[in-house]
Every structure is written in structure tokens, then in C-alpha cells.
Simulated scan of single mutants.
Amino acid sequence: MDVRRDRDAAGRARNARPRDALGRPLPHGAEGVDRAPEGVPRTPDEALAEAQRLLDAGRPFHAHEVLEDAWKTAPEPERQLWRGLAQLAVGLTHAARGNARGAARLLERGAGNVAPYAQAPPHGLDVPGLVAWAREPGRARGDEPPRLRGAGPAAPGPAR
């Protein structure tokens, strides 16, 4: 059996297996969904727009990848914010996968990381709305994606 690991151009281990819309690995050769490319430099506005598009499309795992890239490249004063946003997307991923306990933990962790930015939210983020969304009783069901900016209901996503 060949146990070589998938590697990127820099030699870092990567899993090249296709994934479903919720980020679960599929067997090699299976038809997966397009993945959000990792390591793409984006402005905060671009990252938030892409993450919102993915959340609205029912792809929170892929939104997490975009937000994680932003977290890794954010200036130090914003790192906790971007980490929290990525955790919210992971919480929604757990919820969509049926893991309510894991979802609740990640949603609370994410809310705790974004909450300190509520007094002066950068990039037009609706930090108070995101915290309220994450802490809403029953949120771990994952029935509705958050609005990263502004108020109002999320656009309907695909049936799950």
C-alpha cells in the first residue's frame, strides 16, 4: 500500500481527497464539491464577502477555510476576531453534520472571541448580532447561517 501523503508546492502535508459540501472527506476518485482555495490573500472585505457567500450556500466548512486564512494573516489586534469568526463557521459545520454538542461548544467559543469587538466592530461586522445569533437557544441545530454584516435574515440556502 502506498502511504505517501499529499503535499502542496511547499512540501506541507495536504489532504487532496475530494470533500462534500460540509467538508467531510470522500474516497479518492469520488465527485466532491469545489473547495475554497487555501492561502489566498484577501482583503477583509473580500474575505467577509466570500465567507458570507459560502455560508448562504450551505457550505460553512468552506467559509471556515476562508475565515481561517484571514485569521492567519490578520494584524495582531484583529486576530482574536477572525479566529472567532472561523470558530462560528466551524460550529455551524458541526451543527449541519448533526453534532449538536460540538456545535454548541464552538459557537460559544466563537461568540466569546468576537464579543470584545462589539463596542467598535471593524469592517462593518455586526458583532452584537453575531454574538446573539451564536448564543440563541437551540442554535446548535444549525438551521440558519449568520449575517456577518448588517441585520436581516440570511438568504435561503440549499435544502439539506
Rank of each mutant, 00 (worst) to 15 (best):
V3H: 14
R4V: 08
R5C: 06
R7I: 13
A10N: 13
G11Y: 09
R12E: 11
A13C: 09
A16P: 00
R17S: 12
E31Q: 13
D34Y: 07
E38H: 14
D45F: 08
L48A: 03
A49W: 05
Q52D: 12
R59L: 06
F61D: 01
H64W: 08
E65N: 13
D69P: 08
A70D: 03
T73S: 15
A74M: 07
R79K: 15
Q80V: 04
L81F: 04
Q87G: 03
G91I: 01
L92E: 05
A95L: 13
R97S: 03
N99K: 11
G102A: 14
A103M: 07
A104D: 11
A104M: 09
L106G: 02
G112Y: 02
N113Y: 01
V114S: 13
V114R: 00
V114H: 01
Y117C: 03
Y117V: 03
A118F: 08
Q119V: 07
Q119R: 15
P121R: 06
D126S: 05
V127H: 00
G129D: 08
W133A: 00
E136W: 03
E136R: 14
P137L: 06
G138E: 11
A140M: 09
R141M: 08
P146M: 07
R147V: 02
R149S: 01
A151V: 12
A151R: 15
G157P: 04
R160P: 06
